[in-house]
Simulated assay, not measured.
Amino acid sequence: MGVVYPNSQSLRLGVVLRRMPGATAWAKWVWKASSVLPGAPDASWKVLREEGDTTEYHAKTLDLWLYVSDAEAYAHELQARAPSVYVVMREPAAEDEGDAPLSILHVTVSPYEAQDYSDSGEEIIERVPMSPALLAWVTSFVDAHYVEEPFVKRRRDKMRTDRAQDGIGDARIAQASDVYRAPRTPREAAE
């Protein structure tokens, strides 16, 4: 386990990316987040495995933070068929120096936070299944900090609104003929 604070915990998490040949002439390579490595040391595009044209890289190691305030989101993710870690990546800008094909920005287990990142359309969000050890760590955090609030249906008041017509017209208009007419200024009334 990584750093522990009163309202949060963190764990070092290595991100593994797989590079495969593209299927079209427009994409030479296809990149996919294939796994995460809990407790991994720092790395920068370290080659882990090569099989033909497919290569796996330990691209980067980031801190995965869990916050008490987001425990509901983590509980929601744990209820999914395959609980996942979300890897947030971005294609590097043209002016960025370096030869990294993707910038790995963030890792999270909150589906709400992943949705927030995907709203901009600039980031690439990849789901990676949680390993059993990571699943146990997130589950113990949720069990310790999440208390489900019971749903309370709002009750409507019993006031009858069909008996009186409130808010029709302007009270400053003395005529009953056209209650929707705007009031006239004193100068218009004199003419």
Rank of each mutant, 00 (worst) to 15 (best):
V179R: 14
M20W: 05
D96T: 11
R127F: 03
K60G: 02
P38C: 09
K158L: 15
D116F: 05
V16I: 14
L102H: 02
V16S: 05
E126S: 11
P150M: 09
A25E: 13
V15E: 01
V4T: 14
R81A: 08
A182C: 04
L13I: 13
P183V: 12
V138W: 00
E126L: 09
R90V: 03
R156S: 15
L48Q: 02
R81L: 10
D119E: 13
E123C: 11
R172D: 03
G121F: 04
L11W: 04
V16R: 04
A40Q: 03
Q175C: 15
S140K: 15
P183Q: 10
H76A: 05
L105D: 03
S44W: 15
E50M: 13
L102Y: 10
M20H: 03
A43Q: 07
K32N: 12
W45P: 00
A82S: 07
G98K: 08
E95T: 09
S140T: 15
K153I: 11
S140Y: 08
P101S: 07
E77Y: 02
D119G: 02
V15Q: 03
S110Y: 02
T61Q: 05
V109N: 00
R184F: 08
A114V: 06
K153E: 15
T185Y: 05
T161A: 12
S131A: 08
S84N: 04
S103H: 07
H58G: 06
S69K: 12
A100R: 12
A190N: 07
G14N: 02
F151C: 08
R181H: 05
A80V: 00
L37R: 08
S131N: 08
V15A: 07
V109C: 04
P183E: 05
V128N: 00
W26N: 12
K60Y: 07
E122P: 00
A190G: 06
A100S: 12
F141S: 02
W137P: 03
P111L: 01
L78G: 01
